[in-house]
Write a protein that binds this DNA or RNA. Structure first.
Lengths: 213, 213
DNA sequence: GCGAACAAATGAGCGGTGTTTATATAATAA
DNA sequence: TTATTATATAAACACCGCTCATTTGTTCGC
């Protein structure tokens, strides 16, 4: 055997990532295994380890692609909104919809802890930051320059933690009988209340500066 | 061998749960295995399956105990507060502290999906509801009877999703160099802004009733 | 006291996992 | 054409969850 050159290294890489995504999407994390991925692309286990250091790296790569895809979806969701608050609703709606449609793959992004100090981890964090930046931009537009950049960053993380939590609620109950009702009003409720408070408190001097994570 | 009657079934059960908790707390979910638990309590694998249907059930039992413990901690955190908003801060602070101190075990509660339709799952959900009820009680006190019970329940879930997200931020970055700074101001920021918006919008008629999950 | 019945505990075994490595093979260079 | 090099393989290792025939200790009827 040894069909040298039939597929380039990066081709195998792509095939493996796509196969892994398919497995995760349909069977969840527990449905993923090196042998299954290898079989799905017509190779054997060993070849996978020729391309990826280990399964952890493959998962991180899948997560990276998921984050890219999520970013695109969120970015596109801003096409039809004008007022920042509506744009935040649009982002929240798109976020929850994506999480719901790709529940397994989406969950893996947050549940799989990237281990080690590799370059891959930094790329990973940049991708996360890029998603948050979309929220920050809307918050900045909403508050003009009345609020510091740092506080905007923190507000985005606090607010989006809430939207994230609602997305988790959504996918946890989407298989139950009473899970048919929309969760979007809950998301809008959270955002509107939060923003209303933001406008109110502005000027009271309760700064959050320097309070990073 | 066969040391019949040395430990009762429930004794073995308890020993196993404690050993499992220790393993999870120190090595995370991946450090847990039936053989390790069995060895830790001086038995063999087979005996574990005499007490638990499978490893999934053992994990659900561990999660149940974690939820009980979390409930107690949250309940105790309310001892020194008077105003509902301060009580919410206290709950948030206790929640984040518990999550941070028992990160692995706490994460498992949310990341391990209870499978099947067993009785255990319902007990599990009751334990979750009991935790939410602590938040609902403060929100109810804060809004008196201006807000319906159902809306309170939803508000509690929306708000606490945010606090939960902040707790995740906390444990994700607690090992990093810049992770030393407190996340508590971020939590108070979220709660105060959300509550401020709650008071504002009240009366505008944007009801969330019937919008369950 | 003794054998039968029963409950408790074992440990080998099954099919699976991630990962490593010696080996075989196909494409390329000399 | 031969030697080299890059691919791909299959076997092996140690572990995993889980099952079950078997052994063991206890207890009960006689």
């Amino acid at each position: 055997m040894g069909r040298r050159g039939e597929h380039s290294k990066s081709e195998i890489e792509n095939m493996a990532l796509e196969a892994a995504e398919r497995l995760i999407e349909t069977q969840g994390y527990s449905g993923l295994s090196a042998r299954k991925v290898a079989t799905a692309i017509g190779y054997t286990v060993g070849s996978l380890y020729f391309v990826f250091k280990n399964l952890d790296e493959l998962i991180q790569r899948v997560n990276g692609r998921t984050l890219d895809q999520l970013y695109m979806v969120l970015k596109d969701s801003l096409a039809d909104c004008r007022h920042p608050q509506d744009c935040l609703y649009a982002l929240g709606s798109a976020y929850i919809e994506y999480a719901s449609e790709h529940a397994h793959r989406w969950r893996m992004v947050f549940e799989h802890q990237p281990e080690g100090e590799g370059l891959l981890k930094e790329i990973y964090e940049d991708k996360v930051d890029r998603v948050y930046a979309l929220v920050e931009r809307q918050l900045a537009a909403l508050t003009l320059n009345r609020v510091s950049e740092e506080e905007i960053a923190l507000a985005a993380r606090a607010l989006w933690s809430g939207v994230h939590g609602i997305a988790i609620l959504r996918i946890n109950y989407q298989l139950q009988p009473e899970g048919q009702k929309s969760v979007l009003p809950l998301m809008e409720h959270l955002i509107s209340h939060y923003l209303a408070g933001f406008d109110l408190e502005q000027g009271e001097g309760e700064s959050l500066q320097q309070q990073v994570v």
